[in-house]
Amino acid sequence: MDRRTFLKIGAGVVATTAMGPLPQLVSCLQAKETKACAKNKWGMVIDVAKCVEGCTVCMDACRKENNVSAGNYWIRLATIKPKVPNAKSQPIPLLCNQCDDPFCVKVCLVKASFKRQDGIVLIDEHRCIGCRYCMIVCPYKSRSFVFKHYEEITNPDSPKRQHGVVEKCDFCVSRIDKGLMPACVEACPNKAMSFGNLNDPNSEVAKLVATGKAQRIRPDLGSKPKVYYLGL
């Protein structure tokens, strides 16, 4: 190879490498204008009074929509009971709180966990190195590790995750971008969950939060969750 060809090939390689991120950049700019817009701040309000013990509809819908690995949960129905005599137990769905100041994003070594402009906390499953530091710092136990390779796919439109990465609830981001509601919200037979734009004062979630009765789980930790609960 003479020097000229070498330079040509070299220039080609450099140019291609530089162009690599370009499509990503373009789609990012487009996204800014459409769905993942900073004007939106997605949030959820869950009325636990409407939640029924033993019901698994939201969990099933989530599992089906997102190809959640066996043993892992993106949403789970917990039961809480005050530590006082004769207390009544209360079912409560727990999912990723989509914190506005997320610990998981802060600690991620490779910035695989990130917060989208509209506040949804996502994991780049192609970048996650599987160190699990985010699972250590998440106070809400929202994250699961894909321990085992699994074949079963319930929703071919939703990505499948390989073993060795961390997964969690993404507010059904692909559904939101299509203008749909998250699968759990849509599936709930008692309409216990509402989802919407917290920045829009006319949205149902913003109105519910404005009543001042909606509570968040452990706001004292300072991560600013965007999932609110009524009737706690």
């Binding site: 070594l109 490779v110 190195i129 160190c131 530091y133």
Partner: peptide, 21 residues
């Protein structure tokens, strides 16, 4: 690591907020 083949990413994408990084 769950994905040890991606270890070099830790040097490409430093996260100054992460003590691990």
């Amino acid at each position: 690591l769950g994905r040890p083949e991606r270890i070099m990413l830790a040097f490409f994408y430093l996260n100054p907020q992460s003590i691990f990084s």
